[in-house]
Amino acid sequence: MTTSIYDFSANNIQGKQVSLADYKDKVVLIVNTASECGFTPQYKDLEALNQKYQAQGLVILGFPCNQFGAQEKGDSQAISQFCELNFGVTFPLFEKIDVNGSNTLPLYAYLKHSAKGLLGSEKIKWNFTKFLVDRQGNPVKRYAPTTKPMALEQDILKLL
């Protein structure tokens, strides 16, 4: 039985398998991202939160996804370069994944079930849906794509 995000692993943007147990005792913000989305500028604020709170234990994990309007067409190298060059992203990025459907990354199946969306929906509706996870690996809250990263600051501080 799954008890926390620590039971999962995913391939980072370099293709190396990473156990989410590596982030034990951290506050984790997990975001499905895309390079060609209207919400793509959120990378800037995600990186600002990363810089401001990483020393206190915040980790942001970006999971590129091409399921919404084909807004993440590039391969891992292109995605990584885009994020670094355009937004100075230093937080961990992972390989492109599916967040819905039969190929959903198991981590995302768990997140969606643990922190349901509007009207109890488990489906991810668009890029930049965010999941805040406490230091014990438990999903605490889901945020809509329209929720700006800086609006999460108070919730992050409560968990830090």
Score class of each variant (00 low, 15 high):
Glu72His: 01
Glu72Ile: 04
Glu72Lys: 10
Lys73His: 05
Lys73Trp: 01
Lys73Arg: 15
Lys73Tyr: 01
Lys73Phe: 00
Lys73Leu: 13
Lys73Cys: 01
Gly74Met: 14
Gly74Thr: 06
Gly74Leu: 09
Gly74Asn: 06
Asp75Ser: 14
Asp75Asn: 15
Ser76Cys: 12
Ser76Lys: 12
Ser76Leu: 00
Gln77Glu: 15
Gln77Leu: 10
Gln77Cys: 00
Gln77Phe: 10
Ala78Pro: 07
Ala78Asn: 11
Ala78Met: 11
Ala78Gly: 14
Ile79Leu: 15
Ile79Gly: 12
Ser80Tyr: 14
Ser80Gly: 03
Ser80Val: 00
Ser80Met: 08
Ser80Phe: 02
Gln81Glu: 09
Gln81Tyr: 01
Gln81Leu: 05
Gln81Ala: 08
Phe82Ala: 06
Phe82Gln: 05
Phe82Ile: 06
Phe82Trp: 07
Cys83Phe: 04
Cys83Ser: 12
Glu84Asp: 02
Glu84Leu: 05
Glu84Pro: 00
Glu84Cys: 01
Glu84His: 09
Glu84Gln: 14
Leu85Tyr: 03
Leu85Cys: 01
Leu85Ala: 08
Leu85Ile: 10
Leu85Gln: 15
Asn86Lys: 15
Asn86Trp: 04
Asn86Ile: 07
Phe87Leu: 12
Phe87Val: 11
Phe87Gln: 12
Gly88Met: 07
Gly88Cys: 03
Gly88Ser: 08
Gly88Tyr: 11
Val89Asn: 13
Val89Gly: 11
Val89Leu: 07
Thr90Ala: 02
Thr90Glu: 12
Thr90Leu: 00
Phe91His: 10
Phe91Ala: 03
Phe91Tyr: 15
Phe91Leu: 05
Phe91Cys: 03
Pro92Asn: 09
Pro92Tyr: 09
Pro92Met: 08
Pro92Phe: 04
Pro92Val: 04
Leu93Thr: 03
Leu93His: 06
Leu93Lys: 07
Leu93Gln: 05
Leu93Asp: 00
Phe94Val: 03
Glu95Cys: 05
Glu95Thr: 13
Lys96Val: 09
Lys96Ala: 00
Lys96Glu: 03
Lys96Gly: 02
Lys96Leu: 01
Ile97Phe: 07
Ile97His: 07
Ile97Ser: 08
Asp98Pro: 13
Asp98Thr: 05
Asp98Ser: 15
Asp98His: 15
Asp98Met: 10
Asp98Leu: 04
Val99Leu: 04
Val99Asp: 04
Asn100Met: 03
Asn100Leu: 00
Asn100Tyr: 02
Asn100Val: 07
Asn100Trp: 08
Asn100Thr: 11
Gly101Arg: 06
Gly101Met: 03
Gly101Ala: 06
Gly101Gln: 08
Ser102His: 09
Ser102Asp: 12
Ser102Asn: 10
Ser102Val: 04
Ser102Gly: 02
Ser102Phe: 06
